[in-house]
Design a protein around this nucleic acid. Structure first.
Length: 453
RNA sequence: GUGGCUGUAGCUCAGCUGGUUAGAGUAGCGGUUUGUGGUUCCGCUGGUCGUGGGUUCGAACCCCAUCAGCCACCCCA
């Protein structure tokens, strides 16, 4: 260290520190979702945060490329740049010379790379889940960060639509376990294409879909506003009428069977039949997610009772592994929006009151003379597999109780001279502020062995 | 990337049309008191008013830039 300057500590834009309490809550969400993934046969993988830029660029469209974090080459990163590249001042071209690595933008493109590279060693269909941070140079907003976690489960190499059913079940089960009341909307990209065909719309398809995607946005003034935009785009009134008739048909599924190409109808029906009596799963023709990416089923999950966008989403994509020269394998996957799920659970007060962090008891020595004895008691509990801690801080009662509350420790035992003599301990429920009774060590171990298990 | 709002103690906020030494609550630290105790009271610490420039005799306050947060758009695998 050549020079030590005092710098005001601050974080890079769109990143956060997490307090122990927050990490515990986040882990509660992760662990809950993981347990469901595992139950359905998904295995966890990891990939590097850093990928070669060539792996990442061009996969996310032009917008996505702009949001990629690029890593400057090490050493003299200017030495191989031809002079004319400076003069042109074309930043995209210059990037090729000064950066060859980047931070991953999502977990799906790395998955495609992973599958192509490791296919000889993977079981197929490959069912994996992956939880980890990804980075986007987006402008931050509430619930939108530059570093955030994704939590994905995907099936690669199976076209069976039972995968769709399974993944929907995972959504239902995971959100049920988390206590979040959700509505899952599903649609199929092929259906959108069919509806456009029926309406006689052959041109500007993406533009039309993009507009339809904004149906629920206030700024676009709903159906009326969108209709005007569509006509401005060159559509005839009769075409837009047919289009909205399709989208608004009372019995959507019945409509599919009657009007749409039987192949597509069969496909949708084969999934929807499993959820006929499930009110949390809706088929919604206006769901238009992942325009130039998804090729079949799409999901979008919203939490009921809160003002918040989608908290989870997914879909089927047919062409991803092709980009890495692998044989084409269909993939289908779902993703949980952890940051938003956290916010929803916080807002609705859905986290368990005490999220166990392992320690059940806090032993507080009343004076230095009894610390060694206290430590022995704590150690005896630990030897029995029970999480316990000795408090070695400020002797003020206030500080002790603050500590126990901050760390959500459920029980406390205070050790004084009396306890050293008698080896009988008064157990106190720290939350309820009640004395639970007196126990010797053997009884304490018996009591908490059960609780812990 | 475009447009807008905001930034004062760790946190929540006062601070008058520009006026001298920037306040409170809470948290932190120390003490006091209280029946094995989470109470009471007292004191102390803590601020380059986001940062840098400008206008002015004088700036937390006005102007410009910049950083960060938030909101809308774009986008969101």
């Amino acid at each position: 260290m050549s020079e030590i300057r005092k710098i005001k500590p601050s974080l890079s834009k769109g990143t956060r520190d997490f307090l122990p309490r927050e990490v515990a809550k986040r882990n509660f969400i992760f662990d809950t979702i993981k347990s469901v993934f595992r139950k359905y046969g998904f295995e966890e993988i990891e990939t590097p945060a850093i990928e070669k830029l060539e792996t990442l660029t061009g996969k996310y469209g032009e917008e996505g490329d702009k949001l990629l974090f690029k890593i400057l080459n090490s050493g003299d990163y200017l030495k191989d740049v031809p002079n004319d590249k400076f003069q042109n001042q074309n930043y995209k071209e210059l990037t090729n010379y000064i950066a060859e690595k980047g931070l991953r933008y999502d977990l799906t493109v790395p998955l495609a790379r992973y599958v192509v590279m490791n296919q000889e060693n993977l079981p197929f269909p490959f069912k994996r889940f992956h939880i980890g941070p990804v980075w986007r140079a987006d402008r931050p907003q509430k619930g939108r960060y530059q570093e955030f976690y994704q939590c994905d489960a995907d099936v690669i190499g199976s076209t069976s639509l039972l995968n769709e059913v399974e993944l929907t079940m995972i959504y239902l089960e995971a959100f049920e376990k988390l206590g979040v009341n959700v509505t899952i909307r599903m649609n199929n990209r092929k259906l959108i294409d069919e509806i456009l065909n029926i309406s006689g719309i052959a041109e500007n398809k993406t533009a039309v879909i993009t507009l339809l995607d904004k149906l629920d946005k206030v700024e676009w003034k709903g159906e009326k506003g969108i209709e005007q935009q569509l006509i401005a785009l060159g559509l005839t009134q009769s075409k837009t009428n047919t289009l909205f008739d399709c989208l608004n048909s009372n019995n959507y599924l019945q409509f599919i069977e009657k009007s749409v190409n039987t192949e597509v109808a069969k496909e949708v029906k084969s999934v929807s039949q499993f959820f006929e009596k499930e009110s949390r799963v809706l088929f919604d023709p206006t769901l238009m997610r992942g325009l130039d990416y998804y090729t079949g089923t799409v999901w979008e999950v919203r939490a009921n009772g809160v003002q918040m966008g989608s908290i989870a989403a997914g879909g089927r994509y047919d062409n991803l592994t092709e980009m890495f020269g692998g044989q084409n394998m269909s993939g289908v996957g779902i993703s949980f929006g952890i940051e938003r799920i956290y916010d929803v659970m916080e807002e609705l007060n859905l986290f368990p009151t005490t999220i166990s962090q392992g320690v059940l008891l806090l032993f507080v020595p009343r004076e230095e003379a009894v610390e060694a004895f206290t430590f022995q008691q704590v150690q005896a509990l630990r030897d029995a597999g029970i999480g316990a801690e000795i408090f070695l801080g400020n002797v003020k009662k206030q500080k002790q109780f603050k500590y126990i509350e901050d760390k959500d420790i459920p029980y406390m035992v205070e050790i004084g001279e009396n306890e050293v003599k008698s080896a009988i301990f008064r157990l106190k429920n720290a939350q309820k502020r009640e004395i639970m009774g007196e126990f010797n060590m053997e009884q304490l171990i018996a009591k908490f062995s059960k609780t812990q298990a």
